[in-house]
Amino acid sequence: MLHYDASSCNGCDIEVLDCLTPKYDLERFGVINTGDPFQADMLLITGGVNSQTESVVKQLYSQMPEPKVVIAVGICACTGGVFKECYNIKGGIDTVIPVDVYVPGCAARPESIIDGVMKAIRILDEKRAAAIKDRR
């Protein structure tokens, strides 16, 4: 899992980190937070896209190996949220890269983030199975 903060207010970021700590502990599902896009197959993005992070998000996405899934965490990442009217916000993550799972909330609760990650794992498995089928 690779986490990137596009233009979030920190709320969702902290909740994402919270998911890794003893109370919620995402690692029990086999999910490890990494800082390296080349080793990640799940991209977790918080916050809407602005003009400066747009290229970074695109680059991170292109660096990840196939198959990959993208999770938009928080209402800002889904649609732009309260910042939708700001001059520097382009909207949700799906304006830049394809998104597989949307996790709503401001800030998204750890329970819903875990739920989103579980859904993403299922989608990732399907994509992987489809890729193997294609190869045959």
């Binding site: 233009s7 809407g48 400066q52 992070t53 009217e85 700001c86 001059y87 520097n88 916000i89």
Partner: peptide, 14 residues
Amino acid sequence: IGFIHRGLEKLVEK
């Protein structure tokens, strides 16, 4: 800097 700039101060007009 500027990676998370959203323009919140301007929202005060809306």
